[in-house]
Design a protein around this nucleic acid. Sequence first.
RNA 1: GCGCCCUUAGCUCAGUUGGAUAGAGCGUCUGGCUACGAACCAGAAGGUCGGGAGUUCGAAUCUCUCAGGGCGCACCA
Length: 632
Amino acid sequence: MYRHLEGRLTQHVRDFLRRTYDLELPRIVIEQPPRVELGEYALPLAFELAKKLRKSPRKIAEEIVAGLGAVPGFEKFELAGAGYINAHVKREELASALAADEKPRAQVPPGKILVEHTSINPNKAAHIGHLRNAILGDTFVRLLQFAGRDVDVQNYIDNTGVQVADVVVGFLHIEKKSREEIEQVTRQPRFDYYCWDLYARVSQWYEQNKENRTARHQVLHAIGEGGNETAAIADVISIMVLRRHLMTMDRLGIEAFAKLKESGVLYLETEGKNKGCWVMKRAGASVGEGEQLSEEDQKVIVRSNGTVGYVGKDIAYHLWKFGLLGRDFGYRKFYHYPRGHDCWISTTVGALDHPHFGGVEEIYNVIDARQAEAQNSVIEALRALGYNRQADHYTHFSYEMVALTPRCAAELGYQLSEEDKARSYIEVSGRKGFGVKADDLIDSLIASAKKEVDDRHAAVAEPERLSIATQIAVGALRYFMLKFTKSSVIAFDFKEALSFEGETGPYAQYAVVRAGNIFRKGGMEPDQFTGEEIDFSKYFSGEGGNEIWELWLASSKTSYIIDQCIATAEPAYLAKHAFQLAQQFNYFYHRYPILSEPDEERKKFLLTTVAVVRRELIRALAVMGISVPPVM
RNA sequence: GCGCCCUUAGCUCAGUUGGAUAGAGCGUCUGGCUACGAACCAGAAGGUCGGGAGUUCGAAUCUCUCAGGGCGCACCA
C-alpha cells in the first residue's frame, strides 16, 4: 500500500512540474519524515529546483503545495523547514485498505529469471560460508517470487574439477580403498563429514611430498577422459556428497534444481608463458590501439592440452542460461523434496519429459566476492560475442565470506598463531578442514532451542517440541545470515549465532506468537478482523493516535521494502524491517491492554491492528524462509 | 605492483537514490512478571562517523588524498 501511494505521489508531482515549469526530472526523490506527525512522505525537491528556477526553496515549495491540487489518498501537503514538502496521507483510507488486505496491482516485467546459488564443490561437507550463500540465494528467490516473477533456481556443480579429484586421491592413495569399499563408505549417514576430514588429509599429504601431487594429475586426467574405474569412483563420491548438500539445505527449506557440469573472443597465444593456450583479455584490463596484451592481462580459457578451464566452462554455461548455446542437456529427476517438488539434474541421456530449463531473460549468480574477477570475465566474454543485452541482465550477486572469530576458532580446538589471535576474523579453509560444518551448526541450534522449549512447555508432546525447536533454530540461523549486508564479512561466533534474544529471528517469531495468543485467549480468529464497520478516523488523531498509526504505517510497507531489496539485490533490508515491525508491535503490546479494553468498538480496532501486524510480519518472515511456531 | 571491498558507541552492525536531532542489538548499570506468556518492556551511560582537503544550500553518504585492515590478481574453481 505504501509503495502504491508513493507511486501515485510521484506521478502527480511529475505532472505538476511539467505543467507549471515545463520541467522533466529523471528522478523524484521521496523520503520519509523523521516523525509521523510530519507526514508519511517528504519531498526535498524544492532544494533541487532552487537553482534551476532561480527562486528560494521555500518559495518553490509554497508554489508546489498550492498548485499540486488534490491527490487521491492524500489529506494535505505541508511546507516544512527550509523547503521540505511533507505529504500526509488519509490515514483512515490507508488503514481500511490494509485491514481488508487490498493489493493494488503492480507491474511485473515479463520473462523468466534464473538464480544460481549454493553451487558447492561436491567433495566435502557444506560449511557456514555455504549456508550464507544458500540462504541469501533462496531468500532472493522468494523476494522475486513475492514480486510476481517467474524464477528458476540452479545449483551448479563441477564434478570434474581438482577438488573432487583430491578426495578420490585420498580414497585411492592414502586409504587404498577399492571401489566396493568406497561405495560402502558413501552409504554412511554423513558421508560428507568423512570427505571433510579426508580432504584435509590429502592436502597434508601433498605438503609432505611434492611428488604426491602427480597422483592428482593422474586422477584429474582419468576423470576428464571418463569411462574408467577412477571416473566412476569420482562420480559416486560427488553424487553422494551432492545429495548430502541437498539434504542439508532441505533442513532450512531451501530447494534448487541441480545441474552438473560435464565437461572468438579468444586467440591462440604463440609466445611466452601462455604459449599454446587460447586466451582472452582479463576483465578490467585496458589495452591501447595496436598494443600487445601483456601476459598478466591474459586469462587462459582453453589450456594447451585442449581441456577447458573454469571461465571457459562458465562462458558456455551462461550462453546456455540465456538460450544462446543452441543445444540443451538431458535431465533426470534426482532428489524429491518433502514439500512435493522435484530436483532435476542434467545428464547426457535424460528423461524425455522434463520442464524447460534455461533460455531466461535475467540471471543472478550468488557467488562470493572473491570470484568477482572471474564473473566479470564471463560478462566481458558475453559482450565481446555481441550479447550486450544479456550482459546487462547478468548480475553477480556478490557477498562477503563468513569467517571465524579467533575465539570461535580456539573453541573448535585450532592452534592459532599470535598473529591470528590479533585479527578480528580468520578465513575458513576447506583445504585445512578449518571451519564450522553446516549440519553441526544446525544441530546445535536445534539442541539449544529444544532446551528452551522443554523448559517452557513441558506439557507439549515431545515430537511437537522438537518441531517447534526446529522452526526456531531455522529462524535464528536464517535471520542471522540475512541481518548483515552482503558487503560485510561475518565474523562467526557461536554465542552470537545461538542467541535467541534481541535482533534475532526468534524475536520476530515471538512477536507473531504473542499476537496469535491474544486471539487464542479471546477465542477469536485473526481473519475475522478485516476492518469493516470501523471508523478509523477516531483512532488516528492526537498523541496516542500517532503512536498506533506508526504501527499501521510500518505494516503497510512490506511490498515497498521488498521492491527495494530486489532493486538493490540486498535482502538485509527486509530482515531489518521485520525486526523493526516486531519491535514496534512489542511496544504496542505492552502499552495497550487489548482483551480487557472496555470500549467494544475500540477493542475491535485494537484487535484489527494486531491482526494486520501479525499478517504482515508472517509475510515478511515467510519471504526470508522463516516460519512461525504455534507456541514459543 | 594492479584491481575490488571495508573503517560509524566498549563489542557486532544499520544508516537504500546526498536531506530534518547519526540509530539498533549485545554488553554494563537501574527498574518492571498473580500473564493478551519476561525468548519481552522501560530508563541511564556510551559518538572528533579512521585523518585531512574539496564539491554542495546541505556530506557518515559524492570526489581527491593519506593511514589501517581484508580479498583477489594460476594452463584451481
